[in-house]
């Protein structure tokens, strides 16, 4: 599983078992020098706790914020970050790459 860290899915399974509401974010496309490969994952709970990585730290904050919304709405969403996107630049994908991240509620 290039890009996937199996411990992230284990963490997600454990959180679900604990009765927590969980979202899963997965890098689905990258361009340029994106720091994390396609398949990299971040698991987020409703309180904003997270494990894993989708960008080596650059956009995790923004993904977590979206993920909390997605946990309550139940609707998956594709997010795009990159230098061409002003908002993304603000949250700082400073490596110069672009990524798309699919965020979905897990187990709901």
């Amino acid at each position: 599983m290039a890009g996937s860290d199996p411990t992230v899915l284990d963490q997600a399974a454990q959180w679900l078992k604990d009765g927590r509401q969980v979202a899963l974010a997965t890098v689905i496309e990258t361009w340029g020098s994106a720091p994390q490969p396609v398949g990299s994952q971040l698991v987020i709970d409703a309180d904003g706790n997270f494990i894993g990585s989708v960008s080596g730290g650059c956009v995790e904050g923004a993904v977590v914020t979206e993920a909390i919304d997605i946990i309550s709405s139940g609707k998956p969403k594709t997010l795009a970050f990159g230098v061409a996107d002003e908002t993304a630049w603000k949250v700082g994908l400073a490596c110069g790459g672009k990524i798309r991240v699919y965020v979905e509620p897990l187990g709901a």
Partner: peptide, 14 residues
């Protein structure tokens, strides 16, 4: 991701 799909992924890994 529905729970049964997630469980299929975990089971495949095991």
């Amino acid at each position: 991701m529905k729970l049964d799909i997630f469980e299929q992924v975990l089971e495949a890994r095991t």
